[in-house]
């Protein structure tokens, strides 16, 4: 009896400890140091500069440039893209916009955040933000829900006076993700993450040559595999608790010590 109880307690402790840890460790392909953050941006989907989550990428450009970055996002994450543009000393009113596209170059909606903002005449900087929807493991092909894979960020000025074109600006972009976990989990998964050029990439990996790729976020770089979900933790802890409750219930019926009706020497 004592052994089972001890075992139960140990299992519970193990479950509690492993649970959140395992839930947290749902692999995020991002999270790296700020040290070697990119200092330039691409100018098209094809040339987008790759950044990791948590990195602060900077770039210098000209007003009117279309600046592109790309980052990976995995199932259960809710990415937030933030951008700051430092404007030249003198300029007229200009409107800046931050757009997020998924690996299929479909425009992604922002739940909230100032995606478009107009900087008043002479303003020193403009700040933009986009809180995306939670990345799901799977969705119908007819929906454009965010799926694990590459995401593109495009930063540009959408409305400006002719005289402001080509002025030097500095942009700063940072992507952070909040782990939403099972609360918005859906079942199912993709065969491969939505990384553009992934079919060509795996073919190329086989013959061993190294070449330019559309997006280097690979299929083995820690994407969640689809079988993992925090349901394992919930169900596991539930099972352990049920076992403990069972032991408790059983113990209740036995009372403490020997039943009075049972004669001694049995």
């Amino acid at each position: 009896m004592r052994i089972t109880r001890a075992l139960g307690a140990a299992l519970l402790a193990l479950g509690l400890a492993a649970g959140p840890a395992a839930a947290d460790s749902s692999p995020s392909p991002g999270a790296s140091a700020d040290g070697d953050a990119p200092t330039q941006a691409g100018t098209s989907f094809r040339t987008a500069t790759e950044i990791e989550q948590g990195q602060r990428a900077t770039a210098s450009g000209s007003t009117g440039d279309y600046l592109y970055w790309s980052f990976p996002a995995d199932t259960g994450q809710r990415p937030t893209v933030k951008a700051t543009v430092k404007l030249p000393a003198t300029h007229g009113a200009e409107t800046w916009q931050l757009d997020v596209y998924d690996g299929l170059r479909r425009r992604q909606a922002c739940q909230y955040g100032a995606q478009t903002r107009t900087a008043a005449q002479g303003a020193a900087s403009v700040e933009l933000a986009c809180v995306m929807r939670t990345v799901r493991g799977w969705s119908e092909p007819w929906a454009d829900d965010p799926l694990p894979g590459t995401y593109y960020v495009r930063l540009t000025v959408v409305d400006l006076g002719a005289a402001d074109l080509g002025q030097p600006v500095r942009a700063e972009v940072r992507v952070d993700a909040k782990d939403i976990g099972g609360a918005e989990a859906v079942d199912g998964s993709l065969g491969k993450p939505l990384v553009p050029g992934i079919a060509a990439k795996s073919a190329r990996d086989e013959d061993g040559s190294k070449d330019a790729v559309l997006s280097s976020f690979g299929q083995d770089d820690g994407w969640s595999s689809g079988w993992w979900s925090d349901r394992w933790v919930w169900t596991g802890i539930g099972g352990v608790l049920a076992a403990l409750a069972g032991i408790g219930g059983y113990a209740l019926t036995r009372g403490s010590g020997r039943p009075s009706r049972v004669p001694p020497n049995v």
């Binding site: 608790l241 049920a242 219930g249």
Partner: peptide, 11 residues
């Protein structure tokens, strides 16, 4: 639910 079922089963 699991705890309840476990408890009832034990009982």
């Amino acid at each position: 639910l699991l705890v309840l079922i476990g408890f009832l089963a034990g009982l």
